[in-house]
């Protein structure tokens, strides 16, 4: 279902005379990005006290790659429109369906609607998948680093890796405030190391992501090295990307998706 997402092998465009920024991983479908589709909510699953997963039926969904996002639109009676970008949480092998995991943002008009009003059967508009930059086709070893709901696009990669039984190495370092706030806690396996910044289970230290967490992952890096994917708030992304660079990860092999 991802045949139309052909991989871009080399960039043919302008090459800057400076060090090359991480190129897009795939070519994206312009048609998918420009067409609004109707998505019908089919299921709501609570993940944590502040986050829930929303499952949609999207009959004409073209398919996506792990890490891609979409734009979602809600429309009020008077024509007022609110649109937001959200990362896709589900793996690609789920024809006609996608899942989003949304934090309930304080005062958020869109996440507020999802968490307090939405019910199965409700319809919203969306367009996508968008952007090939943060996509992971499952080809290269992946080092995933996320915090809070920044784990969402990374979970799509973990699920894809598992569903396809991929042999390429994949590791996830994920930070949450507490065990209760750790999204997808029950789904993680040996590939994942959770960190807790406020409160941890007994015997597990509490603290911010540090060099000591990142260094072992770079010490055990596979042949050809890691492709690093970082997702979270800007403060987390700045912190985590700096740790990766200091631990020796090449700067042009770090892809960052920041909230905003």
């Amino acid at each position: 279902m991802t045949e139309q997402l052909t991989q871009r092998s080399t960039s043919t465009g302008f090459t800057p005379p400076t060090r090359f920024a991480v190129p897009g991983r795939i070519a994206v479908s312009n048609r998918a990005a420009s067409v609004w589709q109707t998505a019908t909510l089919t299921e709501i699953r609570r993940e944590t006290p502040h986050a829930a997963t929303f499952r949609f039926a999207v009959p004409d969904w073209e398919g996506h790659l792990p890490g891609q996002h979409l734009m979602l639109r809600l429309t009020a009676q008077d024509g007022y429109v609110a649109q937001r970008h959200y990362s896709i949480a589900s793996a690609p092998d789920d024809p006609g369906h996608i899942e989003l995991t949304l934090d309930h943002v304080e005062g958020g008009e869109v996440s507020g609607w999802f968490h307090t009003v939405a019910e199965p059967g409700d319809q919203v508009a969306l367009r996508g998948p968008l952007s090939g930059f943060f996509a992971w086709p499952g080809d290269r070893p992946a080092l995933l680093v996320g915090a809070g709901s920044g784990v969402v696009p990374l979970m799509s990669m973990v699920r894809h890796h598992r569903a396809r039984g991929l042999a390429v190495p994949l590791r996830l370092l994920v930070s949450a405030r507490s065990p209760e706030e750790l999204i997808y806690a029950r789904e993680f396996g040996a590939e994942t190391r959770p960190l807790f910044t406020r409160r941890a289970p007994q015997g597990v230290p509490v603290g911010r992501m540090a060099a000591a967490h990142v260094a072992p992952l770079l010490d055990e890096q596979p042949p050809g090295g890691w492709e690093a994917y970082v997702c979270g708030s800007n403060a987390f992304a700045e912190h985590a990307s700096r740790l990766l660079v200091e631990a020796g990860q090449p700067v042009d092999r770090i892809r960052i998706e920041r909230f905003g």
Partner: peptide, 13 residues
Amino acid sequence: MNVTRGFTGRARV
């Protein structure tokens, strides 16, 4: 225009 059931959105400015 497909209205989203129960969506009011933030105060209009």
